[in-house]
Design a protein around this nucleic acid. Structure first.
Lengths: 155, 155
DNA sequence: CCGTTATCTTGACTCATTCCAGAAAACCTG
DNA sequence: CAGGTTTTCTGGAATGAGTCAAGATAACGG
């Protein structure tokens, strides 16, 4: 809540704004993610270690979990892939994922605000979010049908 | 009334129709899933073992993978949960998942045919599926915010 | 009934992630 | 800016879901 605007702050102020302590691993993770959206914990760890050598894997997960809970980060989990994280949290946007190379891109919410879509029949559920993943092939993979692709068949 | 074609056949005929051998584990998995949609591999194994004692865990996974590849089953993987399977494969419907008790229900496709939604901007991706998960609370959990609900019993 | 080949069994193994206990660092307080 | 709390980080073990591999078994076409 009331964190639109947080996205514009520096990592240090973002952390303060949500009551989290300012630590080197946290700053490095947030900073790395601003330039590498949709990175996995693994990729984030590798990136962070380039500038801060020696950060435990557990610290990476702790940072990601704390920031996700505080809504400084958003976690997405496309089926069959490890979780990915992004700093764009103020809106309810969706994702486009390449079935072949896993490239992931943002797409704006189809309607504009959560839950953004209404199920045709909610069966009494109180729905608060419509999560949408568009699956397909990115331009590069679509243009290069020769390279070996995974098992999934797309009619 | 579920899916045209294969969905109406008995498991035995479904397997033959897609060129898979008819085996006891396969029949039991398909049969059990018709009455327990959205079950996890674990739940399916438990259910199958009630009528066929001694089926290896690996066999369960093999059956699920073979049938999913052959499109007799569909796999869904809500973020943070193990994969779930269902026999309704002919249409592109979506799901409603309870954040508290994991209860999962089908909802018809918002538009009616795959990909069912168009991203506002596909960035050149060739999209073949729009996967939608509606997150919220099921009626029971919404009505009872304190107690921890459990899922339908698989016996 | 036989042979071929798909499928199942057993058991080790991977990967992503979490749990744990203790050490270190942040930040409130004086 | 020292002291005390409390949060966070480290290192290592552990978990859950699922896969891999090698050999045994069973389907099914002939």
């Amino acid at each position: 809540m009331m964190n639109q605007g947080l996205g514009r702050l520096e990592p240090r102020e973002q952390l303060r704004a949500v009551g989290l302590r300012v630590t080197a691993p946290r700053l490095a993770v947030l900073d790395w993610l601003t330039t590498h959206p949709h990175a996995t914990a693994d990729q984030i760890a590798a990136g962070v270690r380039e500038r801060l050598d020696s950060v435990s894997t557990q610290a990476i997960y702790d940072v990601l979990n704390a920031c996700t809970k505080a809504k400084l980060l958003r976690r997405i989990e496309p089926a069959g892939h490890p979780a990915r994280f992004e700093t764009r949290t103020a809106d309810n946007h969706h994702h486009l994922v390449c079935r072949r190379c896993d490239r992931t891109e943002d797409v704006d919410c189809v309607v504009g605000f959560a839950p953004c879509l209404e199920p045709s029949s909610a069966l009494g559920f109180v729905v608060d979010e419509a999560e949408v993943v568009f699956w397909g092939l990115c331009p590069a993979c679509a243009a290069n049908p020769s390279a070996r692709q995974n098992e999934e068949t797309y009619t």
